[in-house]
């Protein structure tokens, strides 16, 4: 179904449910993998993905077609994932854990990680990056997203995104060389 028709059906009370079912089927995997790279664990990703679609359901009437539906949902998913991590970090302050230790622990104990050792090292190096650089690196390196789309989702200029990606690659390379 074309996106415009899907949006119309989503905004109509009589067709909303069926259209939403289709929306979930269409975007669930793309959003899942985007979130998974941010929060690492499958269970956390499942929580964040559900929260993302609940937000979409509750706010679809407010959606304006200036930004694409996909971009809009990606932005919600990114915000939900970052909020989730922030909350986890805040809780872990009391248990004495440092910045991204929660995520590194998730990576170490993730039963659904099936990459090689070099992939695990790469993921660890990515987790050591500042949040924005980590997002940009994942979206560019793994999702091969265009800078223009990334710019809309992260609300950052293309130039700044390119700089972030450049810094991220440099840092990751240095870290992989050290090990």
């Amino acid at each position: 179904m074309p996106t415009d028709d899907l949006i119309k059906q989503l905004k109509n009370k009589n067709t909303k449910r069926l259209a939403f079912h289709e929306l979930v089927k269409t975007y669930q995997e793309k959003l899942y993998w985007h979130i998974r790279k941010i929060v690492i664990s499958h269970d956390d990703t499942d929580d964040v993905l559900q929260n993302t679609f609940i937000k979409v359901w509750n706010n679809i009437e407010l959606f304006r077609a200036e930004s694409g539906l996909y971009t809009w949902m990606f932005r919600i998913a990114t915000n939900e994932a970052l909020t989730f991590i922030t909350q986890k970090k805040r809780r872990s302050i009391f248990s004495g854990t440092i910045d991204n230790e929660y995520l590194i622990n998730n990576l170490e104990s993730d039963e659904y990680f099936e990459g090689k050792e070099i992939q695990r090292k790469l993921q660890k190096a990515i987790l050591s990056l500042p949040e924005k650089q980590r997002l940009v690196f994942n979206m560019k390196y793994f999702d091969e997203m265009k800078y223009n789309d990334m710019s809309e989702i992260l609300e950052t200029s293309v130039g700044a995104l390119k700089a972030s990606y450049h810094h991220a690659v440099k840092k990751i390379k240095e870290q992989l060389k050290e090990e």
């Binding site: 099936e114 090689k116 992939q119 993921q123 390196y141």
Partner: peptide, 9 residues
Amino acid sequence: ILPENENPF
């Protein structure tokens, strides 16, 4: 240096 961009999860 960077490995393949395959999904490890």
